[in-house]
């Protein structure tokens, strides 16, 4: 059985569909990239999965359980973590405290505070931020903030990790590190990753399967090479995006 299954999921804002009947499944430690032009509905689709938005139609199934419209904190404790497009960290806490929150509240059986701090240190070492753990969040740059959120997400030991454009605006070296880290997270914890990305170079380097969204619908699906040669995909991107690669 797939870990995550979407059945004809749809969400409209004021009558305009943002996600318009999407069905897809993933699991088994796959790295699935979700691409598409601006406004295609990628972020909305992730929000429907974690419960930040409630779908107008369709079903979201996690590991056989119908979680459609369930509130985010419950979905989180069922093993789904998300890193948003804009960083969502807690400004007056230290890096370590931020990450510890992921362990304290994200898990089904919560650890005590000391254990949570240990888990946080491990997660921070994993993303290479261990030397910044006593800094406040304000001292981090965008790239480090995203890594912080990645660490906070894995501190909650998710089975499914949803990432929304975590590589936007990174330079080449940072991009390489990010790709390695996401792959390492999958390899070590066998986490399934659904990952929204505009940076095609990263998609080609990391994704095992690509789903292309356009106007809230699935336009194409397949291996990165296959999809990028698809004439419909090229058409959808033409004049909207450079394919980057």
């Amino acid at each position: 059985m797939a870990l995550l299954e979407l059945h004809e999921v749809g969400k409209a804002y004021g009558g305009l569909p943002a996600v318009d009947g999407v069905s897809l499944g993933t699991g088994g430690g796959e790295i699935l990239a979700l691409v598409g032009p601006n406004g295609a509905g990628k972020s909305t689709l992730l929000k429907l999965v974690v419960g930040l938005e409630r779908p107008n139609r369709g079903r979201v199934i996690l590991d056989g359980h119908d979680i459609t419209g369930r509130p985010p904190h419950l979905v989180r404790r069922m093993g789904v973590a998300m890193v948003q497009q804009t960083p969502r960290s807690f400004p007056t806490m230290t890096v370590r405290e931020n990450v510890a929150l992921g362990a304290l509240f994200g898990r089904d059986t919560p650890p005590d505070t000391d254990e949570a701090l240990e888990i946080a240190d491990e997660a921070l070492a994993f993303v290479g931020l261990d030397d910044r753990r006593h800094d406040t969040v304000g001292a981090l740059n965008l790239h480090q903030l995203r890594f912080l959120e990645l660490a906070r997400a894995i501190a909650g030991s998710p089975r499914l990790l949803l990432l929304d454009e975590v590589m936007a605006g990174l330079n080449d070296a940072e991009l390489e590190t990010s790709i390695d880290i996401v792959r390492a997270i999958r390899d070590r914890h066998d986490i399934t990753v659904v990952w929204v990305e505009h940076v095609m170079k990263a998609v080609m380097g990391l994704a095992e399967r690509v789903v292309v969204l356009d106007f809230g619908r699935i336009l194409a699906e397949g291996s990165p090479d296959q999809v990028m040669r698809d004439p419909a995909v090229v058409e959808a991107y033409l004049g909207k995006e450079d394919l980057g690669a």
Binding site: L52, P72, Q84, R88, F90, L101, R107
Partner: peptide, 20 residues
């Protein structure tokens, strides 16, 4: 207390870490 502080600082962020 940590949960409450995190909601005060960023409600959506707190929901994403598993706080109600």
């Amino acid at each position: 207390g940590r949960a409450i502080r995190s909601v005060i600082q960023d409600e959506e962020g707190s929901r994403l870490v598993g706080i109600d």
